[in-house]
């Protein structure tokens, strides 16, 4: 077809630019929503902070200090401006800088998620591949049943069952994960074991199901049939013909699972009293520690946006049809 000259298409560059911009918009929207949410918390923030016996003068002073009487949008832009300059503010409950309160908790959450992913992803992806290869076998059915069972169970129930079985009855691990977070690997293993186990149990189902579906849909394509007709062995077909084509969806779901493990695990952190970001946010809501809540929200959103970006980016790199422009016929 004779078409006018177009500028060369650069799918990767276009992707990075457009997704960075849309990510930024998401961040602004999410933080604004959290700001509105904190403003809608019932009761007066100043009296919640100072307690019932505070004098009216003290309350008024605090309100002035926190600019609580300013319109919401002014407070938001003020906060946003400070954040852009690296200032997250001061915790209202403890008076310490928010970053000081938040960063250790963020590290803990990331550590938990990382260790959980190291166990969860190989189990779930391997299980999904095996279930696809032996589709409809007893293995596939059993795996499908148990993974759905765990998915359907509320997270706190899984947590309490684990505490009851492995901590109370067997006494292998502490029921609370607040052991001194120092001094070598030993204590860490003890602290992390139960939350990690709970996360693996709760989180595997999606990854496993999606891996299975991705592999199955690739196995039913014409090019897999072609490989069979060519006389390629089953093993080589699975590993070299099918798996690379299922890589995109598997990468996406894996990274979204990691994001889920960092952000969505509030219930698990609370059940095990694990000092992570989710627990910090819940506690801070209770204390009306608005600056900490807002900062937690910011980080959650940041992690989710970044992980989504990474997931789509890797999926794109794993797919020649997206990575290499078509350029048309020779």
């Amino acid at each position: 077809m004779s078409t006018a000259k177009r500028p060369p298409s650069r799918p990767i560059r276009d992707f990075v630019i457009s997704r960075s911009l849309s990510g930024l918009v998401s961040l602004i929207l999410v933080t604004a929503l959290i700001f509105i949410g904190t403003a809608m918390l019932p009761g007066d923030t100043a009296s919640a902070l100072l307690g019932q016996n505070a004098t009216p003068a003290a309350l008024e002073a605090l309100r002035q200090d926190l600019r609580l009487d300013d319109p919401l949008y002014l407070r938001y832009f003020g906060w946003f401006w400070d954040v852009l300059h690296g200032d997250l503010g001061v915790s209202l409950a403890s008076g310490r800088p928010v970053s000081e309160v938040l960063l250790p908790r963020l590290q803990n959450s990331m550590l938990l998620a990382l260790v959980a992913s190291l166990f969860l992803l190989p189990v779930a992806i391997g299980g999904g591949i095996a279930a696809a290869i032996w589709k409809d076998s007893w293995f596939d059915r059993a795996l499908g049943f148990t993974s759905m069972l765990f998915l359907a169970m509320p997270a706190f129930l899984v947590g309490y069952i684990l505490i009851y079985a492995l901590s109370v009855r067997m006494g292998w691990f502490p029921s609370m994960s607040v052991a001194p977070l120092m001094g070598g690997v030993g204590p860490w293993v003890k602290v992390l074991a139960l939350p990690v186990l709970a996360l693996v149990i709760i989180g595997q189902a999606h990854t496993m199901k999606l891996t299975r579906t991705a592999i199955l849909s690739v196995l039913s394509t014409d090019y897999i049939l072609m490989a069979e007709v060519k006389g390629i062995s089953r093993r080589r077909i699975i590993l070299l013909h099918a798996l690379p084509n299922a890589l995109s969806p598997i990468l996406s779901i894996s990274i979204l699972t990691v994001a889920y493990l960092i952000v969505d695990v509030v219930v698990v952190e609370i059940v095990f009293s694990y000092p992570g970001l989710g627990k910090l946010m819940v506690d801070s809501v209770a204390y009306r520690d608005l600056t900490v809540v807002q900062a937690c929200g910011l980080f959650f959103a940041l992690i989710f946006v970044a992980m989504n970006f990474l997931a789509d980016f890797l999926a794109m790199l794993a797919n020649p049809r997206q990575r290499v422009p078509a350029r048309g016929a020779v």
Partner: peptide
């Protein structure tokens, strides 16, 4: 099965209707 695969590799070839679907998009 292994012998059958060997015969397929050496003795016979197949040209499918839709080349677009029969080529692996990854390679």
């Amino acid at each position: 099965q292994p012998e059958l695969e060997r015969v397929r590799r050496r003795k016979v070839s197949y040209v499918a209707q839709s080349a677009a679907a029969a080529f692996n998009p990854f390679y």
